[in-house]
Design a protein around this nucleic acid. Structure first.
Lengths: 347, 347
DNA sequence: GGTTAGCACTCGTTTGTGGCGAGTGCTAAC
DNA sequence: GTTAGCACTCGCCACAAACGAGTGCTAACC
C-alpha cells in the first residue's frame, strides 16, 4: 500500500485512463481484462483498482459503476505514463497546407491557426496574439478622416497593425500629419510600445516641445494613440471550434455548458490564464482545477508558446474536457506552435 | 370561415402569440380568457382557435395540449397586429453610453455594438461591416517588414483599415515604398475599391508602366494588395451573445443547438443572408424558414441597415427564436442602426 | 502470498402501470 | 352566436418491479 506504484498498477491505470478517454464511460474490471495486454482475472484487477482508489487516482460514481480517473490520475498519466508520439503525417500535412502568409494579415493567420487547432483536435482552439505592449514599435501613420478626426495606424515590429480613431483638438492638414508621423517615427524607433509611452511623456516636458506648436501637437496626438492598452477589439484572443465541445458527452448538461460558453465570451479570465503561460517555454498542460477557473472545471488546457520575433511571444493551445486525448493533442499543439513561429518571423 | 379575420379573432390570436412569447408553453383556451381584455368563455375561444388552426395560424403539438403559433401567425403578427412602441428610455441611454468612438477603431466599435445588441435583446447580436469592395478608397501605405516582405495598409473612406502581408519579387527600400504609395494614392483617389482593381489592371497596360520599372513594381504590389476579396479575418461579421440562446427553452435539445452553433461558426451562409439585407432600407424581419437556412429553422432575424458614408452600407441585427419578443427587439435594432450611422459618419 | 472462482449485494437504468390534470371537441341548451 | 357540460385524449409523474453491470468479500488454488 506504499505510495510507489508497481509496474502492473501503472499498466492497469494507463489502460483505465485510455479506455475512459475513448468511451467516456466508467471502466469496469471486466472491460480492462478484455483490453490489450492484461491477462489477469477481473478479480485481481479489482484488487488493484481498490488500491488505486485509495491513492486518490480513481473514483467510482457509485458502488455498482466502474471507475473514473481523477485529475491526479490524468496528471500522473501525462507526466510519466504517456509517451508522446510524433505528430501524424497527415496532420502535419494539413497544418502545412493551411500556412501561407502572403496576402493575409497577422490577425487572420492567427485566427486560421485557431480554427485549425480546433479542427485537428476536435476540441476548441485558442490563440493569443502577442501582447501589443511588449512589441517593438515599427511605424506610425496618420490618416485624415472627416472633420477633426484622425486615424492613427500603428505597426509593430512583428507586423501586427492597430488602428484608432482620434478626435484631435483642432483640424489638421494632410501635410501636417505626414510631418508629425515622420518626426514620431524617428523619435520612437527601436523602442517597445511600453517604452514609447514613457518616451512621449518625457518628450512633452522638453523645452523644444514647449515652444514648437507642431511638435507639441504631434506628441499630444501620439499620446492618445498609445493610450488605453490593447484597444477593444484587438483583445487578441481567437477562440474557434466552440461547437466542438457540444459533442462531448460530459457537457450534455445544459447549465454546465452555458457556464463554459460564458467563460468563452467573457475572455477576460481565460486571457489572464493564457497570459501566465507566456513565461514558460514549451508545452504546458493544465488539468481541471489546475486552471484555477471554476467555470472551466472539468476542462483541460494544453498550450505552447510561439514567437513572432526575438522576444515577442504569444500563446496557442487547445481546450477540451479533462478526458482529453492528450497523446494526440500534445504533438499537434507543439508542432503548430513551432510552425507559426517560423511563419511569423519578421525581423 | 372566410380568409378575413374578424376583429375578435385577431385579438385572440394576438393574445395567444404574446402569451406564448412570454411563456414558451402551448397556450390553452382557459389561459386566454384569464388574460387581458377577453371576456369570453373558454368554449368560445376554443371555437375561434379551431378556426385559426384551420387557417394555418396555430398548431397543437398533440391533442391535449394548447396551441402554438405558426410562422404564418408570427408574420401576421409583425405585419399588422403588433404596434411597435418606441424604445425604452433606459435602453436608449445604455446604447448612448456605449457609443464613443474616439480612441477606438471601427472594427471594435462594431463588435461592441454587436455585444450591446445581444445584451439588450437577450438574444444574439450580429453586425456586418460594410463590404470593403463597395467602399471608397482613401489611402494606401506600405511598410517594410523583414526580407522581401511588405505590409500593405489600406484605409477606406469610412475609416476601415485592412492590412496584408505581401511577398514581393525583390527587396525594396523604405524610400521606394513611400514613393510608390504616393503615386498610388494619387492614381486611385476617389474610386471604390472595386473600381481600383480595374484601374490598376488598365494602368499596367500603358506605355508608361512598361518603361518605368518603379511604376511597374508599384502596380504589381498594389495588385496583390487588392487581390482576393475581404481577406480572411476581416469577414466583417461580428456575432456576440451566442450563449444567450442557450437559455431559450426551445434549444434544450442538444443536437438542435449544435446545429445552430455550427451555423454561427461557419458564418458563410449567414453572411450571405445578411448581405441580401443591404438593399432593403429600414428594419427587415425574417421569420423561421424565411431565412432559407435550414440550420436556422426555428429562428428569426431582425435586421436594419446602417451607413458609414454616403453609400457604404452595413447590416446589423438580432437573431433569436421565432418566439422572439418582436415588440421589444425591433425598436432596439432600429435605434441602434441609426445611432451607429451617426457615429461612423466620416466624410 | 499472490491469484482466482464464486456469490451475495448494491444501485442506476429500463420498463411498465395507474392516476392526474390540462386541454380538446362535441353536443345540447340558453 | 354563446356557453355549460361531458367524454375523451395524451403527456407527465410517481412508483414498483425486473435487469444487469459491477463491486467486495471469502474461500480455494497454485
Amino acid at each position: 500500500m506504499g505510495d510507489r506504484l508497481s509496474e502492473r498498477s501503472r499498466h492497469i491505470l494507463e489502460a483505465i485512463i485510455e479506455d475512459y478517454i475513448a468511451t467516456a464511460e466508467p471502466v469496469g474490471s471486466r472491460t480492462i481484462t478484455r483490453r490489450h495486454g492484461i491477462s489477469l482475472s477481473p478479480a485481481t484487477v479489482r484488487n488493484v483498482m481498490a488500491d488505486l482508489e485509495e491513492m486518490g487516482l480513481l473514483v467510482s460514481p457509485h458502488t455498482s459503476a466502474g471507475r473514473v480517473p481523477t485529475e491526479k490520475a490524468y496528471r500522473l498519466y501525462v507526466d510519466s505514463l504517456l509517451e508522446v508520439r510524433g505528430i501524424a503525417p497527415e496532420e502535419r500535412d494539413m497544418i502545412g497546407r493551411q500556412c501561407n502568409i502572403a496576402g493575409r494579415d497577422v490577425g487572420s493567420v492567427l485566427k486560421e491557426t485557431s480554427r485549425m487547432l480546433s479542427c485537428l483536435s476536435r476540441y476548441t482552439g485558442v490563440v493569443v496574439a502577442p501582447r501589443f505592449t511588449t512589441n517593438m514599435f515599427r511605424q506610425i501613420e496618420f490618416v485624415k478622416l472627416g472633420g477633426r478626426r484622425v486615424l492613427a495606424i500603428l505597426v509593430s515590429r512583428s507586423g501586427v497593425v492597430q488602428n484608432k480613431i482620434i478626435e484631435s483638438d483642432e483640424e489638421m492638414g494632410t501635410d501636417d500629419l505626414v510631418r508629425m508621423a515622420n518626426y514620431l517615427n524617428d523619435l520612437l524607433a527601436g523602442l517597445t510600445i511600453a517604452e514609447v509611452r514613457n518616451r512621449i511623456r518625457e518628450e512633452m516636458l522638453t523645452e523644444k516641445a514647449r515652444y514648437d506648436a507642431m511638435l507639441a501637437r504631434a506628441l499630444r496626438l501620439s499620446e492618445q494613440t498609445f493610450a488605453g492598452g490593447e484597444g477593444g477589439d484587438a483583445s487578441g484572443l481567437f477562440i474557434e471550434g466552440q461547437a466542438n465541445i457540444l459533442s462531448q458527452p460530459e457537457f450534455s448538461d445544459i447549465d454546465r455548458m452555458r457556464e463554459v460558453f460564458h467563460a468563452f465570451e467573457e475572455k477576460g479570465q481565460l486571457l489572464e490564464l493564457l497570459d501566465r503561460c507566456v513565461n514558460a517555454e514549451g508545452v504546458q498542460i493544465f488539468i481541471g482545477s489546475e486552471t484555477h477557473l471554476h467555470q472551466m472545471s472539468g476542462m483541460s488546457l494544453i498550450t505552447s508558446t510561439y514567437m513572432t520575433g526575438r522576444d515577442t511571444v504569444g500563446v496557442l493551445g487547445v481546450i477540451g474536457p479533462t478526458r482529453m486525448g492528450y497523446g494526440k493533442v500534445i504533438p499537434i499543439v507543439d508542432y503548430t506552435a513551432k510552425l507559426v513561429s517560423r511563419l511569423l518571423e519578421m525581423e
